[in-house]
Design a protein around this nucleic acid. Structure first.
Length: 421
RNA sequence: GGAGAGGUGGCCGAGUUGGCUGAAGGCAACCGCCUGCUAAGCGGUUGAACCCUUAACCGGGUUCCGUGGGUUCAAAUCCCACCCUCUCCGCCA
């Protein structure tokens, strides 16, 4: 959410941001409602002022033992008028608020302007080797080595609920533990959060109201299945003022993530590319405003470190305005190369939300005695399914077996090669 | 699920015969004084959001005692609904 005061003063800039992010909000309507609202509020305030003053006088008279029949009668009328105006004020205010939550965050100056992902910019890229034999895609490798049971996963849940089995399950668990350990030793504090989150949390990080359709809702309790670790972890600090000496807060947590992926059937759904339930290790930072862009760079490097240690080829993309999420001001995507699928897969989106989430979630800090909204950032470090894909496809051998990246061997109980058994 | 207790400022904690309580008292923090240093002591300051005004500071005003309604000239205080926390019992693991 943006500050209404800032919207007033920078309406042109906001309009441009809305356009560049492919959103549509009638900002002029909002601005005229705002003017109307402020006028009403000023009027109301002066009426209340009068009411308070006269009530005070009545109280004084009562104490002196005098009756103030006329004043009471007069105030009766004023109170009614106030109530009427309050109702009107409330309605307009609600309308303003409901429009405000649909205004996206403003992209940072360094973000390339463009309609869609084709305007994204490659920031850096690691070299990749040409396959020396015919590389298989991961779903074949997973099947040959019995690592994922798609059929039985679908039986107990539904399509795109993969079930990891045997060494596949072990590899999934190894990835999670390896990532957590790496980030913890890098100064992040481990969090193991709840997986069901309430509406306030979903609103706080900006998933609601825009993305409600993409979430699993437990209707009976009006709770959502966690769509990404940023929701429970960032919202841990909702409605709190964090002591500035504790900033930046660096948090890491494993979460299972659930997404409906509504409308994406048939698109990139083969194997583990796009699934309804997956695992993720999430990095969250809460920082003071002046350092958030430096923190974005180091956060990106911290996530990248996982790919480096796993020796997977990847590239870092700077998202253009059209590809930027609703709440983000600037985002880097990490894309891992999968030679069997001959595709790059997004394994992490690292974003600076500036104070957009903090304003919604009311996360503040004291800076030289003044309360300000802190900045929030997050990024996956990493999402496992596509990392899993990349390992299978990059580490496959001609006979269909898969080598284990050296960093993961200790997490695989010393196992160096996965072979069909 | 049942029974009870409770939700007040950064924290603790008064305040339920409605009015002088944005809120006593304490703690913490900050500023000053005092002291050879430390501790203690003395005086003062310290909530948030919003509106008007201002280049900004200042200033003026409104709102806020879990949330939302209601009663009243007037509500932290009375009434209704809801939410949350804690304790005990039951149930499930």
């Amino acid at each position: 959410m943006l500050d209404l005061k800032i919207i007033r003063k920078n309406s042109d800039k906001i309009k441009e941001a809305i356009k560049n992010k492919n959103e549509s909000v009638d900002l002029d309507k909002l601005l005229s409602l705002d003017i109307k609202h402020r006028k009403l509020q000023t009027e109301l305030d002066s009426m209340r002022h009068k009411k308070n003053k006269v009530s005070e006088e009545i109280a004084q008279s009562k104490r002196d033992g005098k009756d103030e029949v006329e004043k009471i009668q007069q105030m009766k009328k004023v109170s009614q008028d106030i109530k009427r105006l309050e109702k009107e004020e409330k309605e307009i205010n609600e309308e303003i608020k409901s429009m405000l939550v649909w205004i996206p965050n403003i992209p940072h100056n360094s973000v390339p302007v463009g309609k869609n992902s084709s305007f994204n910019k490659i920031i850096r890229e690691t070299p990749r080797e040409k396959p020396t034999f015919t590389f298989l895609p991961h779903w074949q490798l997973a099947e040959v080595n019995k690592l994922v049971d798609f059929r039985r996963g679908a039986k107990v849940s539904g399509t795109n609920f993969p079930c990891f089995t045997g060494m596949g399950a072990r590899l999934e668990r190894a990835l999670i533990n390896f990532m957590l350990d790496t980030h913890i030793s890098n100064g992040y504090k481990e969090i193991f959060s709840p997986f069901l989150v309430n509406r306030n949390a979903m609103f706080g990080t900006g998933q609601l109201p825009k993305l409600e359709e993409d979430m699993y809702l437990v209707e009976k309790d009006d709770m959502f299945l966690n769509p990404t670790g940023e929701v429970p972890i960032t919202n841990l600090y909702r409605d709190e003022t964090i002591k500035d000496e504790n900033l930046p807060l660096k948090l890491v947590g494993y979460t299972a993530c659930f997404r409906r992926e509504a409308g994406s059937y048939g698109k990139d759904t083969k194997g583990l590319q796009r699934v309804h339930q997956f695992n993720k290790v999430e990095l969250v930072k809460i920082t003071e405003p002046s350092t958030s862009y430096e923190e974005l760079e180091t956060l990106t490097q911290d996530a990248e470190k996982i790919l480096k240690l796993l020796k997977l080829p990847y590239r870092v993309m700077l998202l253009s305005t059209g590809d930027l999420s609703f709440a983000s001001a600037k985002t880097y995507d990490l894309e891992v190369w999968a030679p069997g699928s001959e595709k790059f897969f997004e394994v992490s989106s690292i974003s600076n939300f500036e104070d957009f989430q903090a304003r919604r979630a009311n996360i503040r800090m004291k800076k030289t005695g003044k309360l300000v909204y802190s900045h929030t950032l997050n990024g996956s470090g990493l999402a496992t399914p596509r990392t899993f894909i990349a390992i299978l496809e990059n580490y496959q051998q001609e006979d269909g077996s898969i080598r284990i990246p050296s960093a993961l061997i200790p997490y695989m109980g010393g196992l160096e090669i996965i072979e069909e058994k």
